[in-house]
């Protein structure tokens, strides 16, 4: 049976768990966002760079 009532210590226990959950959620969201943002930017720039080099190669 789970004991989810910390009695007089509720504020301390639940604030600790709430803070930890919020901080870990922020870490997950910011890390995934950081990776996704740079992946999209890198892929877009690499495509443009390849296209630019392709055109440069065709030039006389």
């Amino acid at each position: 049976m789970l004991d989810l009532d910390p009695g007089p210590y509720g504020f301390y226990v639940w604030t600790s768990y709430g803070l930890s959950a919020a901080a870990l959620a922020w870490l997950v969201i910011s890390s995934l966002g950081f990776a996704r943002r740079w992946r999209q930017r890198a892929e877009s720039l690499e495509t443009r760079a390849r296209e630019g080099e392709g055109r440069g190669g065709d030039a006389p």
């Binding site: 890390s31 995934l32 950081f34 990776a35 943002r37 740079w38 992946r39 930017r41 890198a42 720039l45 690499e46 443009r48 760079a49």
Partner: peptide, 16 residues
Amino acid sequence: VRIRGEVWRRRAAAAE
């Protein structure tokens, strides 16, 4: 995940 982001960031800088 963050190292992957860093690798992409550096690849973006190189492409730029």
